[in-house]
Design a protein around this nucleic acid. Structure first.
Length: 286
DNA sequence: AAGCTTAGCAACCGCCTACGC
DNA sequence: CGCGTAGGCGGTTGCTAAGCT
């Protein structure tokens, strides 16, 4: 016999999540951590599929998520990664701390793809269109003279991608274990390719600096007073927020639905947190 | 001001893989 | 070893707000 079904489809709610449902899910995960998603809806008092709960948590409620548009550096990294990994959004997201595969996928489809098309670059192959080659989208026909900073980055990135396909240094330590070295397609991936990718990223000093500058401020955000307030507000034992507890990740709480879930204490009582958040925003805009 | 179109994003759907039984 | 499920993934849909006529 196998396991029990994830959820009985009957009586399962669909559609947008309400603030009340979000609260329940957050409360549950704060209390119990991320365990068996199948059991989450029942235990948390939600009429949702476990899958839906997992998605809501990973794509929206997770405290380590960043908010707002991708920065130029992140965007370039996505392009770079997409050139080698194809539409493997989860792999790409794994390289961008605080970003979800869904977010990156959406950003790709709504922003990056269009930019590439405008620049005459095929978003699938990352190769420039040939003059006699039909483009994938009508958008590609207008305004190909665009010269914004982002567009320049994109051109540079695409150009680098083409060059790097054959000249990437050897390294290791990537989680992907496929072994093909084919050009970037939906299914192409390999340890070698990933290793080279990591290496090329690590060798890109400006890119790395940019990413580290984004993440660094979080080290300074955590204040004991803040965690105390959270435990009070959420009605949870303060032990949930102790350093060695499974909920210690909450201390890394960044910028998620703070106002929606009664986390305003972060904003009103903690000057240093505000400063850190401002620093982060500055970093994001740079 | 109203109606229409478009862009952006959250959420769902269906498939695949790993794993428990 | 085979069956069936949970979890994960990528593609797609549908809702909503913003922009346009």
């Amino acid at each position: 016999m196998g396991r029990q079904p994830c959820c009985d489809k009957l009586g399962v709610k669909k559609g947008p999540w309400t603030a009340e449902e979000d609260k329940k899910l957050i409360n549950f995960i704060l209390t119990n951590g991320q365990c068996c998603w199948r059991a989450v809806p029942k235990l948390a008092g939600l009429r949702r599929c476990g899958k839906s709960c997992r998605l809501r948590w990973t794509n929206y409620l997770r405290p380590d998520l960043k908010r707002g548009l991708l920065t130029d550096a992140e965007e370039q990294l996505v392009i770079d990664l997409h050139a080698r990994l194809g539409n493997r959004w989860s792999k790409i997201a794994a390289r961008l701390p605080g970003r979800t595969d869904n977010e990156i996928k959406n950003h790709w489809n709504t922003h990056i793809k269009k930019k590439l098309l405008k620049l005459g670059i095929d978003p699938i192959t990352h190769e420039p269109f040939h003059k006699d080659q039909p483009k994938h989208d009508e958008l590609a026909t207008d305004d190909q003279q665009s010269s914004s900073q982002t567009d320049n980055l994109l051109v540079e990135s695409a150009s680098n991608n083409n060059n790097n396909h054959h000249q990437m240094p050897e390294t290791n330590n990537m989680e992907d274990n496929n072994s093909s070295s084919s050009p970037p397609t939906e299914n192409s991936s390999s340890t070698d390719n990933d290793s080279r990718l990591l290496d090329s990223i690590c060798n890109d000093e400006s890119l790395l600096n940019s990413l580290w500058n984004i993440d660094e401020p979080w080290n300074n955000i955590i204040q004991p007073a803040a965690s105390q307030n959270i435990s009070d507000i959420m009605g949870l034992p303060s032990s949930c927020f102790e350093e060695d507890n499974s909920c210690a990740w909450l201390l890394d709480c960044q910028d998620f639905g703070i106002h929606d879930f009664g986390f305003d204490c972060f904003m009103s009582n903690d000057f240093e947190l505000n400063t850190s958040l401002n620093t982060l925003e500055m970093g994001d805009k740079q």
